[in-house]
Amino acid sequence: MQPVTTVTGIACPLGLANVDTDQIIPARFMVRSRAEGYGRCLFHDLRFDAGGVPNADFALNQPRFTAAPVLVARGNFGSGSSREAAVYALWDFGVRCVIAPSFGDIFASNATKNGLLTATIGEAETEALLDLLSAKGAPEVTVDLAAQSITTGDLRITFAIDPTRRLQLLEGWDDIDLTLRHRAAIDAFKRTLASTRPWAVPTPRSAIG
């Protein structure tokens, strides 16, 4: 994974609360392989009407925001289903950072594994940022992960992120490679199971193979 240090660009005021992962990518698109790209599926049923016509009210459809690498949403962004395809859709569309007062637990974890930055800010700060972004042109923001800051014009907001997720993004860690360095500890733990929890290993009865 490529390290993430800063994300700079236009920020789109999405403004929605409780954006569950079914909104980010409806389930019917998930038979696709990643190679086909998930960008077109992002927010599909919010961005397009039943006939495939773009919904002009949806912020990402406004010309000034279509290329925004930063989204600002209200609380509980990414709740619901564990589908990592929600992160693929955001990434393939070009989103590199989502700013919100809170995130779904599994979504935030999935985001980190794919280099998507989730920046947590307060409710009042979110409202201020949404107001500012909605009001004028297409302001650029800079999200600085090392400094944990969001700046746009004179506004500077400090954001929160789990320290491990921050480090993982800054360093571009590959989780599996890191864990395999603990292989001796894993093997040792596995050997203890026979004495500590011998019943924990499934042993099917002969009737079922």
Partner: peptide
């Protein structure tokens, strides 16, 4: 868990 963590568990039988 998400797909990246599924891959992690398949490969290591562990999770952070």
């Amino acid at each position: 868990i998400g797909a990246s963590e599924v891959a992690h568990v398949l490969t290591t039988q562990t999770l952070w």
